[in-house]
């Protein structure tokens, strides 16, 4: 409210206090919700469009916003609006194929990485032997950034799906592992006691009590990992693949097609956002109990 009224008030500073007092609250809310969020994007888009059309940046290679949208439509559906405006590219109509290639690598890498992380995290969080066995190795490898693994991954796995899957699995492992371990350690010890008292074996306690008790924390790890998975797969595709959104990104750059580069960036943003929502949605129902946090 206050920021909305201040903006309006700047046109008539003298009368401002009186107007603030009499203006109904809903008007300010509508301004804040439907006008203010669009101010900055519209200005940025306008400048972008202008700079692109006048060819002011990067020796005229930097494309206008509308050109990028045309490129995205061409890539998505093969719609080529005007040859002069956006010359057809070799990627015309192939968006789904490349998106599918990236998603495939992410699914496999993310699946392997996070399943392994949950299993080892449970082991390490719930038993001191497991912790001594697993934790030192993980802690030693964790500080090596994923990008540092790229040359080794390319050497070991060649070009294609495998290095991208390997790197994605590696990158998603750590956040899921760390969150699983802390979730298990912070799991209510009294619930474990209750389960033992009711006749559950150690193994049953781990699966039926410790795992669900740690699940809010594990899901946090899975969400963080889903973002990292997209980052990793793009880097892997830039350096060692012949398909995928990351590959199109770098190949378009090599062909000076910055409209396609930006279309790829937009695609990555949309995919990352949707993945996060998907992870959240998949686990929302199973975490309904933890929303209010009392037992």
């Amino acid at each position: 409210m206050s920021s909305a009224t201040e903006t309006a008030a700047s046109t008539g500073p003298v009368r401002a206090p009186a107007r603030t007092a009499t203006r109904p609250a809903r008007k300010g809310n509508a301004l804040r919700r439907f006008v203010l969020p669009f101010v900055v994007p519209v200005i940025v888009l306008a400048i972008w469009e202008y700079v692109g059309r006048e060819q002011l940046l990067a020796d005229g290679l930097f494309p206008a916003a509308s050109t990028c949208v045309m490129a995205l439509l061409d890539w998505l559906f093969g719609w080529q609006v005007s040859d002069a405006f956006t010359p057809s590219a070799i990627y015309s109509g192939t968006w789904l194929v490349h998106m599918g290639a990236s998603v495939f690598r992410i699914l496999i890498g993310y699946g392997i990485g996070s399943l392994l992380a949950i299993a080892l995290g449970l082991l390490s969080g719930a038993s001191s032997i497991g912790r001594s066995l697993v934790d030192p190795t993980v802690s030693a490898i964790r500080p090596i950034s994923v990008t540092g693994w790229i040359p080794l991954a390319l050497l070991l796995f060649g070009i294609g799906d495998s290095p991208a899957i390997f790197l994605t699995a590696l990158a998603t492992f750590f956040p899921v592992y760390v969150n699983t371990v802390s979730g298990v350690r912070l799991a209510d010890a009294n619930l474990v006691r209750a389960a033992a008292m009711l006749g559950a074996s150690k193994r049953k306690i781990l699966i039926r009590v410790t795992l669900p008790a740690a699940s809010p924390s594990i899901v946090t790890g899975l969400r963080v990992a889903s973002g990292i998975a997209w980052t990793t797969v793009v880097v892997a595709e830039i350096l060692g693949a012949k398909s995928g959104l990351g590959y199109v990104l770098i190949d378009s750059y090599n062909q000076f097609r910055l409209d396609y580069v930006i279309a790829a960036m937009i695609s990555l943003g949309a995919c990352g956002y949707l993945t996060d929502r998907l992870v959240q949605w998949v686990f929302a129902d199973s975490l309904r109990w933890s929303v209010r946090g009392d037992s």
Binding site: D188, N190, L191, R193, A194, A195, V209, P212, A213, S215, S286, W289, S290, D294, S295
Partner: peptide, 8 residues
């Protein structure tokens, strides 16, 4: 004392 039942 605090029931301690499984919240999920």
């Amino acid at each position: 004392q605090d029931a301690n039942i499984f919240p999920w």
